[in-house]
Design a protein around this nucleic acid. Structure first.
Lengths: 249, 249
DNA sequence: CGTTCCCTTGAGACCGCTCAAAGACCGTGG
DNA sequence: CCACGGTCTTTGAGCGGTCTCAAGGGAACG
């Protein structure tokens, strides 16, 4: 269960600090409707679950600030991290549409979420096809990201996977202005990375050393600096890139 | 490129042979609109690509009959099969929404596809929110399936992965009446299975032997018979099941 | 100053990989 | 009817990438 919501001074959609960012498409009309759609804000601290596995959520969320991750676990505790969510990412669609939710979502940092009631979703499809289309577009884009992750976990070596993941996170964070001077503050531990890559913690650590030795990244604590982006992309066998520009719900 | 289309006698949506199946939800109205949305049928033979990697598709498809698979490849030839598509499955949404397509889709058997022009999609969102909602629902469901696959490839052992995959295919095929007397004719080679599991061909074969020895499946040529379904599900660590009942576009 | 996480490193085991080759099956053409 | 090539399946052998187990060090925090 989420920590108690703290409704301080909710951001008005028209004043959304994310919208001016280049990665988000302009939305001429309908911002007012989004305002109506929005039920409030939710503040969550690190380690707290936003959506629990096997529950049915009554809400959809857009991340206003902070990092989260989506995961699945097996009964014996093995965990697979499916994807990460950053500001502007829309979460909870699966939980709202398909029956009981199968994945969990957990906060990595302090997070502020915009909350949308799921029961207004149908209303939105009827009255605001533009937004409905955007939501579908985002779902297709997420699917594509998962394709990429599957290719990575299924067919790449440990070094390739790690290079891919670091670049992926870096590029994603860059889109929402979290990268300064080619440096990014990563909020996750090596265990999170391991659970994303399908590797063990120990091997992830050793693979990290190898990447460091090659010199294209510097990872000091949790500060990631990309020294040679092209080299990193090559090591990660990154051939196509998911388009950055997207709608903001 | 798809083989030349053979427009014989296109099935009318109202007479769709799939719709009576239990797995598909009833659709009271709008079947007539679907008829308008449908541009024709396409017949494709095994091994032919339906959607090429890195192309932008002008069409959306629903499979009327036959099997296909969706995959991604690396430049050096490594291939990851992302998912399989059977009758009633809707494909091409990613290719239509997100820019250049990143995955390929290839026919495993002779296939008949319903073809929908992508440029009518927006029209559909405006005039038929019910269908738009269904499309989004299907996208969320596919995402969930990919979550499951990621968990499998990332965190399960070879035997677990294979048991999971065989049950997954079996259950999916059962939904569209392709299973008779607990037997299913699989259209794919062990290389396809290997490329789905993220394993090598040789190891996939050896893992198959192990599964046979345990006695819960019989695989004679490409005929899969499930002897003990519960045992197979346990071996595959299948804990939650993607709901079968779904809309048919 | 003790506890708790997290990162790091070493050692050995094992799962899955590659290389190699043979057998089964099938369609084709001589 | 048989020879042939192609694709797919099967099996063996040995290598190596990744795993588990184990232990120590560092930083943060009460």
């Amino acid at each position: 269960m989420p920590k108690t919501a703290e409704h301080l001074t909710p951001t008005r959609c028209a004043d959304c600090p994310l919208r001016p960012l280049e990665v988000f498409r302009e939305r001429s009309s309908d911002v007012n409707f989004l305002q109506d759609f929005k039920a409030g804000e939710l503040v969550v601290s690190p380690g707290t679950s936003i959506l629990a596995e096997d529950s049915k959520s009554a809400h959809l969320f857009t991340i206003l600030s902070g990092w989260a991750f989506r995961y699945r676990t097996l009964e014996d505790g093995r965990r697979q991290i499916i994807n990460y969510a950053l500001p502007g990412d829309f979460i909870g669609l699966q939980a709202s549409l398909a029956d009981p939710m199968s994945h969990g979502v957990e906060a990595l940092t302090d997070i502020v979420l915009c909350v949308f009631p799921r029961d207004k979703l149908w209303n939105l499809f009827v009255n605001h096809p533009e937004i409905a289309y955007d939501i579908t577009w985002l779902a297709a884009r997420e699917e594509r990201t998962l394709d990429e992750h599957l290719l990575s976990i299924g067919r790449k070596t440990a070094v390739e996977r790690l290079a891919y993941l670091l670049w992926f996170l870096f590029d994603k964070a860059r889109g929402v202005a979290l990268v300064k001077a080619n440096k990014l503050e990563l909020p996750m531990s090596q265990l999170h990375l391991a659970d994303t890559l399908g590797l063990s913690l120990v091997h992830t650590n050793k693979t990290l050393q190898k990447l460091r030795e090659k010199g294209s990244i510097i990872l000091d604590g949790r500060t990631l600096k990309i020294v040679d982006e092209e080299a990193l992309k090559e090591m990660g066998r990154i051939e196509t890139v998911v388009p950055a520009r997207r709608p903001l719900i």
